[in-house]
Design a protein around this nucleic acid. Structure first.
Lengths: 172, 172
DNA sequence: GTCAGATACTAGGACATCCTACTATATTTC
DNA sequence: GAAATATAGTAGGATGTCCTAGTATCTGAC
């Protein structure tokens, strides 16, 4: 008897390829690619977020809070209204409140009254916050962003393709 | 005098393109593309997750719980150990416990003892759960997966590129 | 056979996101 | 100008993810 060779093709080890196969087998072929693409995106997000959070852990900030710090860092006066932060980062206002609460508790930012609109609150980067933002960026650049694990061509493809997606949903 | 033409290039409306510009301006050019790609992924994830959750809302399941249902749906016996679910979906065991708790409360799955390993618990799809999984899939296929907003070429590019990424981190 | 180390699952807690109010202040309308 | 509407921010709650710990059970080494 010949060496063990399965008569039935073995299952792919890749769960997403397997899901794609199931989609086709169930007659959902027109949706299979879209399903696989979106599922891949979900997983890629999880992978990169985990990497980024690992690098940021020593700085005791999450990626969400890091993004707030960088937004302030890049602003001319180092201060922005809460609402603007939410718009730029495309997150709900309550998420901004949450992030700023924690950043303020860590003395990385401080809330100051808006000079002309008493409804609004400005979030201002502290000296400590600015220094931490720069150090955290150095770490992220060195440990994640400079080498993502994707080829330079793939990186540009991702930026371009997802840029079109973002534009289509009104991100810019 | 000529029509208003800014002497200084105006800020891009795209926050990610703007961040990329800032990265280059700060001397972080080698990391700028990686930063932009990862940030784009984060945002694309958010966009698609929101779409998917909107479609699933009428079925009263989240995407996380939907994925568990589909995994069971595709399994031969309609039942899998908790641990296997976590491995396939690449999420922490405690996330599986959480999802299964809610699915069980909704009578979409039930926990049954593993026949040979008393440590393990099998999660079994109920009739209700199977029906809901199929209806939810029809909705997702029609409203999201068949037309993701990306071109077919882009969809395939995403699957391929992120597949390489997933392989590089040991997903399969 | 026993005991140490692995494995399966749950408990409790930290964070992040969103949603629905609710309050305070601005703006618009008539 | 006063009332209706819109906007900025916070509070409280639901869900999902991860982590650390703790219990129960299995496996393997001696």
């Amino acid at each position: 008897m010949a060496p063990m060779t399965p008569a039935i093709p073995r299952l792919a080890a890749d769960p997403i390829a397997e899901a794609h196969r199931q989609w086709v087998a169930h007659g959902w072929a027109p949706a299979a690619d879209g399903m696989a693409a979106i599922t891949s995106l979900m997983r890629a997000h999880q992978i990169f977020l985990a990497r980024v959070e690992t690098v940021l852990r020593p700085f005791e900030v999450s990626f969400a809070r890091y993004e707030v710090l960088m937004l302030l860092h890049f602003s001319k006066r180092g201060a922005l209204p809460m609402r603007t932060i939410g718009s730029r980062l495309q997150v709900h206002q309550t998420s901004v409140t949450n992030a700023v609460d924690r950043l303020e508790a860590a003395s990385l930012v401080q809330r100051i009254p808006h000079p002309t609109d008493r409804r609004a609150t400005l979030v201002e980067l502290t000296r400590t916050g600015r220094v931490l933002a720069e150090k955290a960026t150095d770490a992220l650049n060195a440990e994640v962003f400079t080498d993502t694990g994707l080829s330079p061509r793939a990186v540009n493809e991702v930026i371009k393709t997802l840029g079109q997606l973002r534009r289509s949903v009104g991100d810019f």
